[in-house]
Amino acid sequence: MVVKKFSRDLPATFGLIVVMSILTVAVFGWWLVSGPSDVYDSNLLARLSPPSAQNPFGTDDLGRDVYSRVIIGARSALLVGVGVVAASMLIGVPIGLYAGYTRTIGSEVVMRITDIFLAVPQLVLALAIAQILSRGLESAMLALALTYWPAFARTVYGEVRHQKTSLYVEALEGLGASPFRIAVLHLLPNVAPAIIIRATIGVGFAILTAATLGFLGIGATPPSPDWGLAIAESRQFLPESWWLALFPGLAIFITVLGFNLLGDGLRDILDPKLRRSR
């Protein structure tokens, strides 16, 4: 039933296909390129050559094959997306559950802290955090996770607040179930759909923001074939070497698009209250 409904939703199906393909590329990427030397070794004589049969996406300023680098870049992009979302969930979901279910000073304080995090655009805060950590993908991920968890906390908080007034929670409380038990065994499964939707869209969003950090020079480090970094490096070779900017950017676009479409589709199925178009 669910599968049927999903498969009728063309954009969502397209999203699923894209996400599956990206996953495949990320896992089996090395089979699609001729070897690490194409990705990492410089070949100064062949630098900045336009797309050709041999190098379908051209070569970069060190003579490395852009196609190979875009393919291998998928892995770190996905890793960032999934890693950031997982870490944000790990922080945000328990906090949201706690703050939503109990009504103590602690929950009030926690929610005010999320207010502080949400008071500045995420990118600005992540930029500041990434700047103080040592450079590298891990730091960028940490910076993103540290600034993205309030989104999960808020989602869970809202849902739990909503559910708390339901009859079944009151019934459980009446039966003497412990708050922990109610929260984890009964509330959590009920807010799971909201978390899954947020997470799917969050992966795309995290990839986008991580690429922006990479572009600003505080994410992935050379010679990593990071997409954002590649675009940053391409700028000084524009407009002649346009392929340096075009292909990594398309890769980001398609990946994020896939996750967004999938997230939309999931929302339709998992959350019938909301209309598909939102």
Partner: peptide, 20 residues
């Protein structure tokens, strides 16, 4: 850094380049 990195890779050295 990348020029040094590319050649020293052949010697088995592992250089990581970190922008700051």
């Amino acid at each position: 850094g990348q020029v040094l990195q590319a050649e020293t890779r052949k010697l088995g050295l592992d250089i990581e380049i970190i922008p700051a």
